[in-house]
Amino acid sequence: MPSSEDPTVIFEQERARLVRLAYRMLGSVGEAEDVVQDAWLRWRQVDHAGVASAGAFLSRTVTRLCLDVMKSARVRRETYFGTWLPEPVAMAPDEAPGDDLTLTLMLALERLSPLERAAFLLHDVFAVPLGEVATTLQREPPAVRQLAARARKHVQSARPRFPVEREEGARIAKAFFEASATGDVAALRGMLADSVVVHSDGGGKVLAFPRPIIGIDKVTRMFEGIARKAWIQDAEKLQDLWIDGLPGYFSLEPGGMLQTVALDIQNGLIVGIYFTRNPDKLQRMAMQFGGAPGAPAPH
């Protein structure tokens, strides 16, 4: 790096990309920000004149820090109560997506080994040259190529062949909220694919379904049970959003419960519904888009 460049300025120029990389590795904004802060502390201590590429050096540092964090994160996931979903990262409907890595793909990445995940993200998502990925992972290039190829094969089925258009996604998300808030189960059923799956993450702290609900009949019965509770009609949508690349919204449910809802839509029908209700994962959303602290809803 030329000595005339300010290391602080260089780091700040890279920060957003580094946080995005760390978040894709870890599924937690808080942990991602901690990793990037740790990388900043290390960046301050190096001889910058000897760094040929600041971007490569920082990507390498963040990736290795994430691999260390993932060791303990995997232990926590094994003891996590119920379904684990990534901390939602949202953008307004008119914002351009940063990449094509959706919530469904992030969940597919969870099934990979840490090295496979790192190789796939660096090479396929962040376009890091294979040789640099090999240096980062301290592996030979042929081994890294195999890691990335295995990861690509595993996540291939999670990539939709025809991603939903933004207008159609917003329309279906709006109709889904209105039908679920009013208890219109017939309308809801008309939006669902036969193989629809509901995932609900409460982290053991608020009311949520501990296991996925699979199939249109079971999901419809679930909504019928919810519709019988009159208080559900007090739900308030706070913001239409795209959540980790999927159309959805942020809402304030009866009893002060915050939640995000993301919809995986294929061929005009909803194939996946992702409710994130764990209040620990919604603190940033509440600060960004409004809403009260999460609390258990009446039941």
Rank of each mutant, 00 (worst) to 15 (best):
M1I: 09
V19G: 05
L21G: 04
A22N: 14
L26W: 06
G27Q: 06
D34F: 00
V35L: 13
Q37L: 13
L41Q: 13
L41S: 12
R42M: 11
Q45L: 09
V51C: 11
A52N: 00
A54R: 00
G55D: 09
S59H: 04
T61A: 12
V62C: 01
T63R: 00
C66A: 13
V69A: 13
V69K: 10
S72V: 07
A73W: 01
A73C: 01
V75Q: 13
R77M: 08
T79F: 11
G82F: 02
W84V: 11
V89N: 08
P93T: 05
P97I: 04
D99N: 14
D100F: 03
T102H: 05
M106G: 01
L107C: 02
L109Y: 14
E110A: 10
R111I: 01
L112R: 04
S113I: 03
S113K: 03
L115W: 02
V125T: 15
F126M: 13
G131V: 06
R139E: 13
R145F: 15
A151C: 10
H154P: 00
V155F: 02
V155S: 01
V155M: 03
R161L: 14
V164I: 15
R166W: 04
E167S: 13
E168V: 15
A175N: 13
A175Y: 09
E178V: 14
E178W: 10
E178K: 14
A179S: 15
G183D: 08
V185K: 05
A187I: 08
L188D: 03
R189T: 08
M191W: 11
M191Q: 12
D194L: 03
S195K: 08
H199E: 15
G204Q: 07
L207S: 12
I214A: 10
G215T: 09
I216V: 14
K218F: 05
V219N: 01
M222T: 07
E224I: 07
W231P: 00
I232W: 07
Q233M: 01
A235V: 11
Q239S: 15
I243N: 06
L246M: 07
P247Y: 07
Y249G: 13
F250H: 07
P254R: 09
G255Y: 13
M257Q: 12
V261E: 12
A262Y: 11
D264L: 09
L269R: 09
I270G: 06
I270L: 11
F275D: 09
P279D: 10
R284Y: 04
M287R: 04
F289W: 15
F289E: 14
P293Y: 06
P293I: 12
P293L: 03
A295N: 12
A297W: 11
A297P: 01
H299D: 06
